[in-house]
């Protein structure tokens, strides 16, 4: 009997020992892996979590809130301990964060903001507004404060779309001789932006500048402008800091972009998750990550 109790004790001790040594698991849920920028964000978050010694798994929401919701349900039931999250929708994703919160799982938003001040544990976001204020200043300088321009916005309903546009217009709208001839959504998509630019050029032959809410759209707009033979007439401004755009700025084909730092956002989110595991419970609700202006003068640094 004594032996049975002894071995039972050993068995139970073994079980509890396994549980206590099991490392927390981190889920990285990304809005879409169809865009290279988000691939960098997602993969960097996984790498950072693994580098810090934790198991991490990447989930693709395919820009679909329903898929995102399924991911949350699965990862809550699978016992993940923290979520590094890039939401699909500023409002629609809040319910998913709250589900995780209810299950005691901290959620750290990366890059895309949700419209809630107390759902996520913290939101680590590019300072889109200030970055686009800098683009706006460069835009005014390059167009000497006058001329006709158009704007290609990102996705309707996405906070980054509006933060970028607002930052840009905070500056540009102060210059009354700069006239906005058209403003359309390009959904952060290169091909769509190309089509939008083509139609805007047909409607307004006198465009001198275009501001695009991301670099994929800036490249699409540039393609349309080049095909129309208007490269010397229309100055192109983007946002993201894509390699292809930085190269075009160096070559003098595009004017400026805002360099974002997805790796820094991912690194910060992963570090916050680890701090949470170690007992820290209070985090600032928003952490802005600086955006650098890339133009002809500064491009050599990027």
């Amino acid at each position: 009997m004594k032996y049975i109790i002894f071995f039972l004790g050993l068995f139970l001790a073994g079980c509890s020992s396994k549980e206590s040594t099991e490392k927390p698991k981190i889920a990285v849920v990304i809005s879409t892996l169809n865009n290279p920028w988000f691939v960098v964000l997602g993969e960097s978050a996984v790498q950072q979590a693994e580098k810090l010694g934790y198991e991490a798994k990447l989930f693709d929401s395919q820009n679909n809130p329903a898929v995102e919701s399924d991911h949350f349900e699965n990862l809550i039931s699978s016992g993940f301990d923290a979520i590094l999250f890039n939401p699909t929708d500023a409002d629609g994703s809040i319910a998913n964060i709250l589900k995780a919160k209810e299950a005691g799982i901290p959620v750290f938003c990366m890059d895309r903001e949700v419209n809630s001040n107390d759902a996520a544990t913290s939101q680590i976001l590019s300072d889109n507004y200030t970055g686009c204020v800098a683009i706006g200043v460069e835009f005014v300088k390059q167009l000497h404060g006058k001329g006709n321009y158009v704007e290609i916005l990102g996705l309707a309903g996405d906070n980054n779309t509006y933060a970028r546009s607002n930052g840009f217009h905070t500056v540009v709208d102060k210059f009354k001789d700069l006239k906005l001839l058209g403003q359309q959504n390009g959904d952060f998509d290169r091909n769509k932006a190309m089509e939008v630019m083509e139609s805007m050029m047909q409607a307004n032959p006198s465009i001198q500048g275009v501001f695009c809410g991301n670099d994929a759209m800036a490249l699409g707009a540039f393609q349309a402008i080049q095909s129309a033979g208007k490269s010397d007439q229309i100055k192109v401004f983007g946002f993201d800091g894509a390699d292809e755009v930085v190269q075009k700025i160096k070559e003098g084909k595009m004017v400026a972009t805002g360099m974002q730092y997805p790796k820094i956002m991912a690194k910060t989110a992963a570090a916050f998750a680890v701090e949470y595991f170690k007992g820290r419970k209070k985090f600032p609700q928003h952490i802005p990550v600086g955006v650098n202006l890339v133009n002809a003068k500064t491009a050599k640094h990027f």
Binding site: N117, D127, Y129, A163, T170, V171, P284, Q285, H286
Partner: peptide
């Protein structure tokens, strides 16, 4: 004069005071 130079250099503004980026901006 559109950037964060004066705001940040003053050390008078804390992130914790703002519930959203919009309010801070």
């Amino acid at each position: 004069i559109f950037g964060n130079e004066v705001r940040d250099a003053s050390r008078m503004v804390n992130l914790e005071d703002f519930k959203s980026q919009k309010d801070l901006n």
